[in-house]
Design a protein around this nucleic acid. Structure first.
Lengths: 346, 346
DNA sequence: ACCCCAGGTGACAACGTTGTCCAGCGGCTA
DNA sequence: TAGCCGCTGGACAACGTTGTCACCTGGGGT
C-alpha cells in the first residue's frame, strides 16, 4: 500500500529521473532541470506543477550525472594516517568546515601509514574526480600525482612535505618546536636527555630529531647514541626504548617525546618510576594538564593547519595561479611543570 | 616542455578519455574498457599497447561516468556529530575499515548536532547516490529518508535511534550502563548523587537519566531536582551546574557524568575542590587511568559499534531482506578508584 | 494588418563509461 | 576445400543530467 516509492511503472530500487518528473508534470525535461536548479525563466504555475511531481515521486537529482556533465564534483578528498588519532580529529574537522563553507563534501580515508595504501586511496579519489586533495603523506614519492595535478586537481600536503614533486604544503615547525622543547629541558638543568620518536622515514620524525640534536649541540653537549630511539609508536616499542634509557648505567634524567602517542605511553612508563624523570612532548593532548605531573608540551595547532590547507586548496580552485607555497605553522611551548619538576642534580 | 599532460590536441584541465587512449593505441573504445577493468578477451600484445597509451596520456578512469552507467557508487556516507570528538574517531575508523574491506570509500560530514544540517548532509549524500548511510542522528524525525530507503539506500542508525521511521539501529546500552554506574556509587555508600548530562532531546541523554533514576529508585532513594542537570556539554555550562550541586546546603557526594566531555570538565572542576567528591563517567577516555584519582567509567565500545553498523549495512547491500534490526552493544564498568575513594560519611 | 521582440518552453547533443551484440579472422574438422 | 567454432575487437545505445539553440505565443510598435 505504501507505493509512494514504487509507482506503477517503476521497479523497486529504480529511482525516478527528471524524465519521469517531466512526464508526470506534463512539461519538458529541461523545465524540470530549471526548477531543480532554481534557474530563472519558469512561470510560477509551471514551477508549482513540477514541484508537486517531484515530491509525489520522491525525486532526487542524480549528482553522478550532473558531475559527469559539469566536470566539477564539489567534493574534496582528505587522506590521513588514522582517523582515530586525536591529532587528526581537529584537523579534518577544520578541513570539513572550510569545505562546507565552499559547498563541498569531504571524502576521506586512512592510509595507516602505508605508502601503497596512500597511493591507492589518492588515485581512487582522483578517479572520483574530486576537485582537490588534502594529503598527509605516508610515502615519500608523489610523482604519481603529477598527471592529476596537471589535470587540475588542487593538491595540498599537510604535516609532511610532498616527495619529488612541487605542491602546496602546510607544515608545523617541527624543527623549531623541538629545539625549543629541548632548550626548555636544558634550561632546567637537564644534561642527559633522551629522544623517543616516530619512524625515521617520516619527515616530522627526522625534523624533530634534528631539533633535538641542534639544541643539544648548541649547549655543547654530546648525544649518546643510546639516547635516541626512533620507531613505531606502539606502546611496547616505546616502553622498551624508554626502559633502556632509564636503566642504563648513566640514565637519562629527561625524555623528549616525538609525538602524541609516544608522550602518552611515556606518561604511563614514568608513572612506574621511582626516580623523577622530566618529560616534554611534541603535540598537545587533552588532559595533559591533569595528569601528574602535568606534561609540558610543544603544541601544534592542528585546526589551523587544516584551515590553512583547505584555504590554499580553494584558492587554487578559484583559479590562483601562483607557484606552490609552503606555509609553516609555528608551535607553542606550553610549560606545565613536567620540565621543571626536580631539576637534575647531575 | 613538460607536455606530458597537455598533448597537442588537449587543453589544460582536460583529461584524456578512453576514446583518446583507444585512438592512441589504435584499438576500439571497448577494448580499452576491457583492459582498464581487467576483463578477459584481450591479447597480451593488445593489452600492452593499451597500457602504454594509458601511461603516456596519464589516463585515469572517470568514476562519475562509471557510476552513472553502473548505478552503484561503491561509497558509503557517514554522518556524525563532530569529527573531532574522540568518541567518533574509533567509530568512523571502524566503519572505514569495513567499507575498505568491501571496496567502498567513505564520505563523511559533521552535523554539529543540528537536525537541519543533518538532513542537508544526508540528502547531499543521497544525491551522490551513496550505496549506504551510517547516521548518528541529530534530529528526531527521519521520515525524509523514507524515499531513499525505499529506493535502496541501506541505512543504519548508530548511537541513537531513528525517529518516526523503521531502520537498522546500533545502540549502546545507555540505560543499563548508567544504572550500573550509579549502582556502583551507591554500593560505595553514596546517597546524594548528581547527574550532569547532555541535552534532553538527545536519546542517549534521556536513557542515561532513566538509568540514573532507576538505580536511585531501586535503592529507595529520592532524587532531588537540583541533582539533575541536562544541557549542552560546553565547559562553562557543566562547570556552573556542578558548582551548584557542590555548593548546595546538602551537597552531592558523587557525580555521574553523562558523557565524555562532561566527564573531562568535571575532572577539572573537582580538582579545585577541597572536599572529596566521587566521579563516574559514561564513556571511557584516554588517560582516564592517569588523572588523579583515576576515573571510573562505563566504557562503550565505539569501534565495535562502528563495525556492527557497517556490517549490517553491507549485509543489506548484499541483498539481505530481513526486517530492521536493533543491536544493543553492552557497556562495561571499569572501576578505577574514583568511585571508592573516601566513601561517603553521610 | 504586419513585424518584431521577449519570455517561456522543449528537442537534442554531449559528458565518459559499460553492456550488448555482431563482424572478422584464424584454425580445426569432415 | 567447405563449413564451423572460438576468440578477439569494435559499433552502438544507454545511464541522467545540463548547455545550446530553436520554437512558440502574445503583446506592443509602426
Amino acid at each position: 500500500m505504501t507505493d509512494t516509492a514504487r509507482g506503477s511503472s517503476r521497479r523497486y530500487g529504480t529511482r525516478p529521473t527528471m524524465k519521469d518528473v517531466a512526464a508526470r508534470a506534463g512539461v519538458g525535461l529541461k523545465t524540470v532541470s530549471r526548477v531543480v536548479n532554481g534557474e530563472p525563466g519558469v512561470t510560477p504555475d509551471t514551477e508549482r506543477r513540477v514541484q508537486e511531481a517531484i515530491t509525489a515521486l520522491g525525486f532526487r537529482r542524480n549528482d553522478s550525472a550532473r558531475i559527469l556533465r559539469k566536470g566539477r564534483t564539489a567534493s574534496i578528498g582528505l587522506v590521513l594516517e588514522d582517523l582515530a588519532d586525536p591529532f587528526y580529529g581537529p584537523l579534518s574537522r577544520a578541513v570539513e568546515e572550510v569545505a562546507r563553507h565552499h559547498g563541498a563534501l569531504l571524502i576521506n580515508g586512512s592510509s595507516a601509514e602505508d605508502p601503497a595504501r596512500e597511493q591507492e586511496l589518492v588515485l581512487a579519489l582522483c578517479a572520483r574526480r574530486v576537485d582537490g586533495l588534502v594529503v598527509i603523506p605516508a610515502g615519500d614519492d608523489h610523482r604519481y600525482l603529477a598527471p592529476e595535478i596537471a589535470a587540475g586537481v588542487a593538491t595540498v600536503f599537510v604535516d609532511r612535505p610532498a616527495g619529488r614533486i612541487e605542491a602546496d604544503t602546510v607544515l608545523s615547525d617541527s624543527f623549531g618546536g623541538s629545539r625549543d622543547a629541548v632548550a626548555h629541558l636544558l634550561a632546567h638543568g637537564h644534561r642527559r636527555i633522551g629522544f623517543i620518536g616516530d619512524q625515521p622515514r617520516i619527515h616530522t620524525a627526522k625534523e624533530r630529531l634534528r631539533g633535538y640534536r641542534t639544541a643539544m649541540a648548541a649547549a655543547g653537549l654530546p648525544v649518546d647514541d643510546a639516547w635516541v630511539s626512533l620507531g613505531t609508536t606502539e606502546p611496547e616499542r616505546v616502553h622498551t626504548a624508554a626502559r633502556a634509557m632509564l636503566d642504563a648505567p648513566e640514565p637519562v634524567t629527561a625524555l623528549f617525546a616525538g609525538n602524541n602517542r609516544v608522550t602518552v605511553t611515556l606518561v604511563r612508563v614514568l608513572r612506574q618510576c621511582t626516580a623523577p624523570v622530566a618529560l616534554v612532548g611534541f603535540d598537545d593532548f587533552e588532559l595533559a594538564d591533569l595528569v601528574s605531573p602535568a606534561v609540558t608540551v610543544v603544541a601544534q595547532d592542528a585546526a589551523r593547519m587544516g584551515r590553512t590547507a583547505a584555504g590554499l586548496l580553494f584558492r587554487r580552485l578559484e583559479g590562483a595561479d601562483e607557484p606552490p607555497r609552503r606555509e609553516e605553522i609555528p608551535t607553542r611551548l606550553i610549560a606545565r611543570g613536567s620540565g621543571e619538576i626536580r631539576p637534575a642534580h647531575d
